[in-house]
Amino acid sequence: MEIIMAFVCGFLFMAAIYLILSRSLLRIIIGTGLLSHGAHLLILTMGSFKGSAPPVLTEGVTDFVDPLPQALILTAIVISFGVTAFFLVLAYRAYQELKTDDMTELKGSDDIE
């Protein structure tokens, strides 16, 4: 299963990067969403899926899965939520001010000499 998941994560990363390389700012943000999904799944995969019970103490169960990656993912999820929210609002504000969400039109500043 871990092997397949590695491929799935790779696929998610691929899709994310493909979206991030597009012109529309929204697609880019959606891409970052996919990216964080990929990253989170990957952490879980790297922690391996061994263990038969969720890491919550229950009587008679000792074979828990590795709790540490889960904790890390939780932290990562929250952070990426904050960043995504910020990024979205930035996109929204940028569109308000600049009237475009096209990355090729959003360049500039290199007209300095």
């Binding site: 871990e2 092997i3 590695a6 491929f7 994560c9 790779g10 696929f11 990363f13 691929m14 899709a15 994310a16 990067i17 493909y18 390389l21 597009s22 990929g38 990957l42 995969t45 790297m46 391996s48």
Partner: peptide, 21 residues
């Protein structure tokens, strides 16, 4: 180029993940 770069990144993640696992 876009497809190539994204494929490369995907491949990189997968390959390293497989090896690390």
């Amino acid at each position: 180029g876009r497809a190539l770069v994204s494929f490369a990144v995907g491949a990189m993640v997968t390959l390293v993940a497989l090896s690390a696992h």
